[in-house]
């Protein structure tokens, strides 16, 4: 059932997203030409600069459109009149939420990849790409030699970073979903309640983070000088690698927990407090 829902969800969103991403790449191609035009003569320089500005606007558009689209889809499909059709389908609430979430995650990843690709396209015109890449390669080789960090370590770190980034994006998405599910459970002032809920979730999150960091800081401040000396002593490469893994994994776990809480809120309000117009 979820796969069927996904089929329809992608059908509903792919037209806009592919258009926008396609436009971005097209503008990037134009911008890379524009970059070459700069300095040629006065007229072309102006045009080139304008295209470059357009390109930066396009990147911002892609971000905005992706965000607006996934929020709008959630609202239109589940909380508006269409909800009468969607919720009469013989499918559980979890399938509905996961469908929207998976679709959002895919498009956010796609937008990110498209933006990277567009940067590569624009950068290729300046011919700096080759220089940057070789410089980066030299840097990595030196770090690897000095600290015996292998390609595997870099790869796993990159993966962890990617996972954390995607989870953060999903978390951002879920914040909207939870706020809307809560806000639309009221009979009046649905939009207002959603906005307030969104702000409240943000504030609560910040408070939790602050509390966590404060606790951590307190923990460290309570340690005697001996702790720091021993800390310096045990700092070798292996321990640093393990520490960085631990920190990343810790971050992933926390972010996943954050997502889980928001998901639970969304599921509760959609299942038990649905209030269609």
């Amino acid at each position: 059932m979820l796969s069927r829902l996904l089929k329809y969800e992608f059908r509903a969103t792919s037209r806009i997203m592919l258009c926008v991403l396609g436009a971005l790449l097209a503008i990037a191609a134009a911008a890379s030409l524009g970059m070459r035009a700069i300095g040629y003569n006065r007229g072309l320089t102006i045009v080139g600069a304008m295209v470059l500005v357009l390109y930066f606007l396009a990147i911002m558009c892609v971000g905005a459109v992706t965000l607006i689209l996934l929020v709008y889809r959630f609202y239109k499909s589940l909380l508006s009149d269409e909800g009468y059709l969607i919720f009469s389908l013989p499918v559980g609430v979890h399938s509905h939420i996961c469908c929207k979430l998976i679709c959002a995650a895919v498009w956010m990843l796609a937008s990110f990849a498209a933006i990277l690709l567009s940067i590569a396209i624009v950068a290729s015109s300046i011919g700096i790409t080759g220089v940057v890449l070789s410089d980066l390669q030299v840097m990595f080789e030196r770090i690897a030699a000095a600290w015996s960090i292998g390609a595997l370590d870099f790869a796993s770190f990159a993966l962890e970073l990617l996972l954390l980034a995607e989870l953060s994006a999903v978390g951002g998405c879920l914040t909207f979903y939870a706020a809307m599910s809560f806000g639309f459970s009221f009979s009046e002032h649905k939009a207002l309640c959603s906005v307030l809920a969104y702000i409240a979730i943000g504030i609560l999150t910040q408070l939790c983070i602050a509390a966590l960091l404060g606790a951590l800081g307190l923990l460290f401040s309570l340690q005697g000088p001996g702790f720091y000396i021993s800390l310096g002593g045990i700092l070798n490469v292996t321990r640093v690698k393990n520490l960085s893994h631990a920190v990343m994994l810790g971050g992933i776990v926390l972010q996943a927990a954050y997502c889980a809480v928001l998901y639970a809120i969304t599921a509760y309000f959609l299942k038990r407090r649905l209030n269609l117009p």
């Binding site: 509903a12 009149d81 269409e82 009468y84 059709l85 009469s88 013989p90 499918v91 559980g92 117009p277």
Partner: peptide, 19 residues
Amino acid sequence: VETKKIVSLLPDRLSLPGY
């Protein structure tokens, strides 16, 4: 979910996706 398989609803609102 099981009852939704055997219930057909005609709501009093227009609930069809426009696209």
